[in-house]
Design a protein around this nucleic acid. Sequence first.
RNA 1: GGCCCCAUCGUCUAGUCAGGCCUAGGACCCUGGAUUUUCGAUCCAGUAACGAGGGUUCAAAUCCCUCUGGGGUCACCA
Length: 523
Amino acid sequence: MTKVRTRFAPSPTGYMHIGGMRSALFAWLWARHNGGEFVLRIDDTDQQRNVAEALQPILDAFRWLGLDWDEGPEVGGPYEPYFQSQRGAIYAEALRRLLEEGKAFRDFDPPEVTQSDREAAENEKRNYLNVRRSLELSDDEVATKLAADEPHVVRLLMPRGEGRVLKINDAILGDVEWNVSEMPDPVLARKDGSPLYNFASVVDDAAMEMTHVIRAQEHLSNLPVQHLIRESLGYDTPVYAHIPFVTAPGSSKKLSKRDANKLRKNPAMKPMFDAADVTFPLLGLDADGDGMHPVAVAWYEAMGYLPEAVFNFLARLGWSLDGETEIMSRETVVENFTLDRVVKAPAAIDPDKLKSFQQHWTGELSLEAKTEGVLPFLTKAGYVAEPVTDETREHVARVLKAMNDRLVVFSDVLKFDEFFVADDRMEYEEKAFRKRVAKEGAADRLRAFRDSLATVEPFDALTTEEAMKSWCESNDVKLGDVIHAVRVATTGKGQGVGMFDALAILGRDRCLARIDRTLDRVG
RNA sequence: GGCCCCAUCGUCUAGUCAGGCCUAGGACCCUGGAUUUUCGAUCCAGUAACGAGGGUUCAAAUCCCUCUGGGGUCACCA
């Protein structure tokens, strides 16, 4: 029994696509489910920019989600190198063999000629097949051209005219067939000798002994060509599994980075953008910055989503354990993941569903864990000074306890800035102020209650509640007629955590100071 | 356009391979109610789907055919 080996081969693009992450997740899951190995191989054959820099966000995303790789960048491995740009000699050797065995040929036609052949076929509405002019050349002619250093590409010889139908069993899609006798000969290497994706990918998968090729369905049309390359090289056939792609909400089109800005107008995605628009500036992040949109994995981390939630969400998108299990830990998914339960059809991302997973997993967190999670957001926003003292940690914990399940993503804590700003810097929501404080009689009641609040001892949630209730009773005032004014006076907002929790967190002095300031404001 | 893939509630899905247990189940969203000092959360209840047409069969969401619809891909990109 050979060990299962799967891989993900990202291109260093500077960000990790959420859909790509899902494909990577499935490949990783299959390896882990089988106690196998997961490899990260970098497709950097076509990179102009700084590879290391463009790769970093991708590795970060893998680490954040908890997808570890046994071989690849930073960890190395027995099949080094893991950067395609460094594997030139391996491709050259494979190419040499193919040429030698007559399974590939040198095509001396310049690109313009190939191009016009293609256009001619299109105009005549017939299937395009490259013209094998260079195959007519005698050995001597070829030798002469080579000696003269004439530019040429190398093409694989497809089984043209043999009526061959290639049938491949995909682990997810089942049998898929192609008539490979009517396909053009694919270019394996450019005129500068560099390999093309289809070729490099096959050589690497074989060299790295991948047992399963698990990737997005958009690669399905590459399969016949890749398989034939593989066959020509005499490699074993791996198990192929083509995963359906991820689409935008309300769309059946592949979710793409190019659509990131269009997504802003997508009704289902809009709340995400809106949330980021208020959150990111507080954190000193550029909301329009590169890679800072919900197509990129980094966005979710920046907003304070939990990797557990995103993992659960992604695993559940296009895969199910059964008909009812929704909440799944990493261990549960690894234990139960199988390729045959991957859905064939594309699936749309649903921010609401993600949120419900997020709610669940946040709820699983201990108060300590929540505190640790939230602290980086508070310090970045300047609400909490560094280094963080035990005292502030305790204050944050009290706020979180009062927030309870109002904390969904970590950055939600920033909405409760009333607990972190100085009393004289607290801002008032004008609408709430007018409705609850500036209204007829409200200020008088607030002033009167202020004095009885001043004497509450000790000052906690229970005693303040008791104080308000008895004050209401003895003054024949309904609770609702004073509590809202107190809320706006002490927090500046019309809504928030439980009123008495808020009072207790603030403490007597700050409550009184804020009420006095509010009273001054009414005039 | 060629080739290929896909098709169950608005969305994610169970059921399809081994036809009857499906007057189609769960989750998210949505709606209504309960609870509540606000928001949120929670608890109940509800709306909502087998793309169409032909077969096969005692019986079809499940098998076969056709159509329709959606999508992917067609480079000396990856």
